[in-house]
Write a protein that binds this DNA or RNA. Structure first.
Lengths: 229, 229
DNA sequence: ACATTTTTGTGTTTAAAAACATCTTTTGCT
DNA sequence: AGCAAAAGATGTTTTTAAACACAAAAATGT
């Protein structure tokens, strides 16, 4: 178990937008949980009760679709909030979340957050901005996933992972090493096609692979592939 | 030109959540414009400057994709706000909007809205809820458009139009009569396939067609088709 | 009213991706 | 270490939908 006092200081905005009294209240009600790799965090249909904040690790937000195929709709990096959309619109979760890799997550009761938002316009604006950005990305993603061909979608996913989680010290190896199935679920394709197309990208020297580790060799060409297929 | 005084009374929430002084300020800065059918309202890349409110008519929000094919990502019904997402996230528009049919739209400078939000948590919460709902629908839409087959996507679009715009007095004719191209752009398919699949639905007695008018004959079967294809 | 353009409808061909089958490699477990 | 299960790899077949081509009907402008 992680010390809650150490965690609050890491919470962006929630820490510095609150009055000392509010901060104390959050500290009292906050809990911290650890999740192992691939462990579910919440499931579709669950009733949301807490705002979640990813303190460390990586999280995927996905939706199960036709024939057991999942689609990853968002990914979460530390330190970011998630899991509040359904609560804000008074719905049960329509997505599921799982740890991409082992993660530590702080939870704060959503009712408390709602109270803070109603008292603190800065905080309201913070979440408004986040939702607005997420909606824009979701719209763009819809079109990319529906209209691009397999090569374009996979290239885009690789660039998406770079943008979301960054790269290691070498400047080109992705900081996250997803399974082929995860790559498929990011890119709206079958696992077979993800494997196949990754191999083609290696042959074309766009990337190199070392197990699950993906190294971007030719980013401009990858961007071009993402655009035109 | 429509009288601005008559319009403000129709604005949901913005009317009843504001103090008299705030209401006066909105009235002073609000403008009203009329758009003909298919007339563009804003384009991808434009800088957003106003909150838009659809007073009457119907609006489609879409995104141009690969090879001139557009994808409709949202539709707007009267009386609803739109066009604020990009402004809230400090981006230019990443979508375009056009009148589905002739429409009247009120515009309020986004800076004024931002000020009101910072002073009025109820108003902030109103927009938070709207964005949260829109994001949920967008996520669901992503999966539906990517994973379902043509029949499922088209059936879903018909039901989506019923839900969004309702039906006429007969209880089964859609209130909106989109072109085959619009149906295709809603359903992520080519116009040819929209025409073809609509014909098949007529043969199967799921719907009947009278030009652009769509009448739902067997909603349960249409829902089943939407789910399983 | 008539010519022109746009929209709708239908058949055919081609390309893309899913489904399927099989095998190898890696990983996790006790 | 040894076994079972999961993940990765690859070739083949089948399905799906896009692309293409053309004709008919409807809408639009003059």
């Amino acid at each position: 178990m992680i010390k809650r006092e150490e965690v609050l200081g890491k919470l962006p905005d929630l820490d510095n937008l609150l009055t000392p009294g509010e901060r104390e209240q959050v500290l009292k009600e906050m809990q911290v949980h650890a999740y192992r790799k691939n462990e579910p965090i919440y499931s579709e249909g669950d009733k949301p009760s807490h705002l979640l904040c990813l303190i460390s690790g990586k999280v995927k937000i996905y939706k199960d679709g036709v024939g057991g195929r999942a689609q990853i709709v968002r990914v979460v990096n530390a330190v970011e909030y998630f899991g509040y959309r359904a609560a804000f619109s008074d719905e049960n979760y329509i997505t599921a979340a799982a740890a991409f890799e082992s993660s530590v997550i702080a939870t704060i009761p959503i009712d408390l957050i709602r109270q803070l938002i109603m008292r603190n316009p800065q905080l309201a604006w913070f979440f408004l901005r986040r939702l607005a950005k997420a909606l824009g990305r979701s719209d763009a993603r819809t079109v990319n996933l529906t209209q691009k061909h397999i090569r374009g979608r996979l290239a885009e996913s690789i660039l998406f992972l770079k943008e979301s989680y960054g790269v290691e010290e070498d400047g080109c190896t992705l900081s996250i090493s997803p399974s082929r199935e995860d790559m498929a679920n990011l890119s709206n394709m079958t696992t077979s096609n993800a494997i196949r197309t990754l191999s083609v990208f290696v042959q074309e020297k766009l990337i190199s692979l070392d197990g699950r580790r993906i190294k971007i060799l030719d980013e401009p060409a990858l961007q071009k592939t993402s655009r035109i297929g």
